[in-house]
Nucleic acid binder design. Structure first.
Lengths: 238, 238
DNA sequence: TGTCATCCTTTGGTACGACTAAAGTTATCG
DNA sequence: CGATAACTTTAGTCGTACCAAAGGATGACA
């Protein structure tokens, strides 16, 4: 079906992108398998390799293809992660601007504050149990900073999962990724770990007591304290 | 400049992308002006037009260039808008999946709920004044559905501006854009306009009374009602 | 003189062919 | 039978050529 659609757009690649993405979504190109070679695609669509490559590049930027340098592109059905990772390069530029990191972190405070409120109001029994065990793991890792960092992330991640909205865990991943440059270069001190752990406890207690105000207040205190720790390390120029 | 490894990446375009984006950020390429022609860029960087075009395409996907089909790409310093518009194509796919729109709308409820809480707690006098005038404009437009839609958006937009965090207005734009396909195809009924206007009044009152709970409750009711209106129009399959 | 139609130049979009180097595959040899 | 060498495939890059649209220059005409 080599059709030469009269595309007003002036861009042949656009039509190819559409057709390819349809084939990916429909499962004609199986998720996880490599895309056909470029030379086959040019036959299939009746276009030059130039256009094929342009389309492939576009799709990989959109997260529907995973393109490593000298390899065949791997088909990936797009998920919320892909959507967020599409912003990655731009965000990295914004973070270099003064205040960029703070702006981003403030949105995290906003969102996560809303999440703990919601958790305090509607967390189910198993949500509470998951939080509890995550909290215990976190408490047990106070002396192992690397492990503490991991369990810390896991605890916060749970807050994003309680809503059962798949967008939110992806958002959490994004926050962790984007703020990692700062966070990872901070000194890991057991005293700080203890402080952070106790903050987690207060958040958990707030949720447990079904007290949204207390839970949110604890979370805000926690994150703002974390922020001031970052500022101590890097100075004000963020 | 720590340009250590010369070109092991396997992709010449990557280095060009870096150099170009630096020139854009440094202002060497003025914001709003067209990029030099591709044929000049190939001389300047000593590469083929293939690579130039690949780099240009990458940058335009990232929102640092605005590329219309047969025109020179226009230089755009990346802002939060660009970051969010980078997700656009992926999001549009996700919205086609069952539940995608609802998931997105739920995050809007979450965020906007947090915003009105914050507004109720820390809105300044001029914030209140702005909300008030937006509300009045909205009330005056009940019989003009197109105008009502506009003032409705403007009212909600203010909620995202009170925080003075530049990320949030961009987020609002994104919500409006992404949810527009559903919203714009809904019937515009003056009765609904009145209901929505009254909901706006309740939200405003909550903020005015410095009552976060009331303000958030009013907003949630408002948005959930709007959602159910959408469902009436499109059925459950969203 | 000002406006409009026309020509010419610039410039992005596409095609084709060639070459390189890395990845993948097969054949070969110990 | 496993390691290695030889071969094949394939993405990455380059160069050239051509087309068509956009933009600017030119000239005719009112």
């Amino acid at each position: 079906m080599p059709e030469i659609s009269v595309n007003k757009s002036g861009r042949a690649a656009d039509t190819v992108v559409r057709q390819l993405s349809e084939k990916i979504q429909s499962g004609e190109y199986t998720d996880g398998t490599p895309l056909p070679p470029e030379r086959l695609l040019m036959e299939e669509f009746g276009i030059s390799r130039t256009v094929v490559r342009e389309a492939v590049q576009a799709l990989s930027k959109q997260g529907m293809l995973e393109a490593r340098p000298r390899h065949r592109p791997i088909v990936r059905k797009p998920g919320y992660d892909a959507a967020i990772s599409a912003m990655e390069t731009v965000v990295s530029h914004l973070l270099n601007n003064s205040g960029g990191v703070k702006n981003l972190f403030d949105t995290r405070i906003l969102v996560e504050g809303a999440l703990v409120r919601q958790a305090a109001q509607q967390a189910q029994r198993d949500d509470i149990a998951a939080l509890k065990s995550a909290l215990e793991a976190n408490g047990a890792a106070i002396d192992d900073s690397e492990e503490f960092y991991r369990t810390d992330r896991a605890f916060h991640a749970l807050l994003y999962e309680i809503s059962h909205n798949p967008v939110l865990p992806s958002l959490h991943k994004a926050y962790v990724t984007w703020l990692a440059p700062q966070w990872s270069r901070m000194p890991r001190l057991p005293e700080r770990n203890r402080v952070n752990y106790e903050a987690h406890v207060r958040i958990f207690d707030g949720i447990l007591m079904r007290d949204p105000d207390a839970a949110e207040a604890a979370l805000r205190t926690h994150l703002e304290q974390a922020w001031s720790q970052v500022c101590e390390t890097f100075g004000e120029d963020l």
